[in-house]
């Protein structure tokens, strides 16, 4: 049976009944967006900002593949050289908002292409307190 999921940080990633959502900042004065939420706009320098759930669909803007295990700490996923599996990393451009850096569920360079449509999902990093600790990722979609 699948374990219940625990967000890596609930002020960054909300696990809702309708799926995962990233929490970002929108500037009410200049409509600039930043992820994660911060209390100041890095475009207009103002502070009239709000917390919003960012869009969940976008297009791949840049990508690479993480080919070696990151150092743990800080990495919370599988870091042993024997068991490590490469994962994609990219920026996904969310229309009218921003570009979010995230893991990608696809790690085959042959299957990754700038401009391809992507959708927000989660990936499991490890188990914690009998729950699956998850972080956000984007997966290719139709």
């Amino acid at each position: 049976m699948a374990l219940t999921q625990l967000s890596i940080k609930d002020t960054i990633l909300e696990l809702t009944d309708d799926g995962p959502r990233l929490i970002g900042m929108r500037c009410k004065d200049c409509d600039n967006h930043v992820f994660p939420y911060q209390e100041g706009c890095n475009r207009c320098t103002g502070t009239n900002v709000e917390k919003i759930r960012l869009g969940t669909k976008g297009k791949l803007w840049a990508w690479t593949v993480q080919g070696f295990p990151p150092k743990a700490p800080p990495y919370l996923g599988e870091a042993s050289p024997e068991k490590f599996q490469p994962y994609g990393v990219g920026y996904v451009e969310i229309d009218g908002q921003l570009k979010v850096e995230a893991r990608l569920t696809e790690s085959d360079p042959e299957k990754l292409q700038v401009g391809m449509p992507m959708e927000l999902t989660t990936v499991v990093l490890c188990e914690e307190d009998d729950r699956d600790l998850v972080t956000y990722a984007f997966e290719p979609c139709a």
């Binding site: 690479t64 990151p70 994962y87």
Partner: peptide, 27 residues
Amino acid sequence: TASTGRDWYGGTGLALTTQFFGMKINR
């Protein structure tokens, strides 16, 4: 990347300078 609480950025498997260089030159 975190001075307090969980280091979600590095914990996620991001926060590697090598990833930026890979993405920038790939593009």
